[in-house]
Amino acid sequence: MAAYFDDETFKGIDFTKKVIVKGEYDNCTFLNCNFSGIYASNIGFIECEFINCNFSNADISNTAFKTVTFIECKMLGLKFNKCDPFLLALNFKDCQLNVSSFYQLNVPNISFVNCNLQEVDFTEANISKGVFDNCDLRNAVFNRTKLEKANFSSAYNFNINPTNNFIKKALFSKENVIGLLESFDVRLE
Results as ranks from 00 to 15, higher is better:
132 F>Y: 02
28 C>H: 05
170 A>V: 10
104 Q>S: 15
78 L>G: 10
39 Y>C: 12
11 K>Q: 09
32 N>I: 04
177 V>T: 06
71 I>M: 03
156 Y>G: 05
144 R>S: 13
173 S>E: 05
113 V>H: 09
114 N>I: 07
152 F>V: 04
21 V>R: 13
127 I>R: 03
161 N>Y: 02
81 N>G: 08
77 G>A: 13
186 V>A: 13
41 S>I: 04
95 C>D: 07
10 F>N: 07
67 T>L: 09
91 N>C: 10
128 S>K: 15
92 F>Y: 11
90 L>I: 14
91 N>S: 15
18 K>H: 10
21 V>M: 11
129 K>Q: 10
167 I>S: 02
135 C>R: 00
98 N>I: 07
148 E>I: 10
28 C>M: 06
104 Q>V: 13
182 E>L: 15
2 A>C: 08
76 L>N: 12
34 N>M: 04
61 S>T: 13
177 V>S: 07
163 T>F: 09
62 N>T: 06
109 N>A: 07
86 F>S: 12
171 L>G: 08
59 D>K: 11
105 L>D: 05
142 F>R: 01
28 C>P: 00
39 Y>A: 11
131 V>G: 02
130 G>H: 00
66 K>P: 00
42 N>T: 10
77 G>I: 11
100 S>D: 03
141 V>G: 03
32 N>V: 04
52 N>I: 06
160 I>R: 01
165 N>S: 00
182 E>Q: 14
87 L>V: 05
70 F>C: 01
137 L>A: 08
74 K>A: 05
169 K>E: 15
93 K>H: 07
62 N>D: 14
106 N>A: 06
9 T>R: 12
165 N>W: 01
52 N>K: 14
94 D>G: 05
159 N>D: 08
21 V>Q: 14
89 A>Y: 02
15 F>S: 00
73 C>K: 00
31 L>N: 05
38 I>R: 11
112 F>R: 01
15 F>V: 02
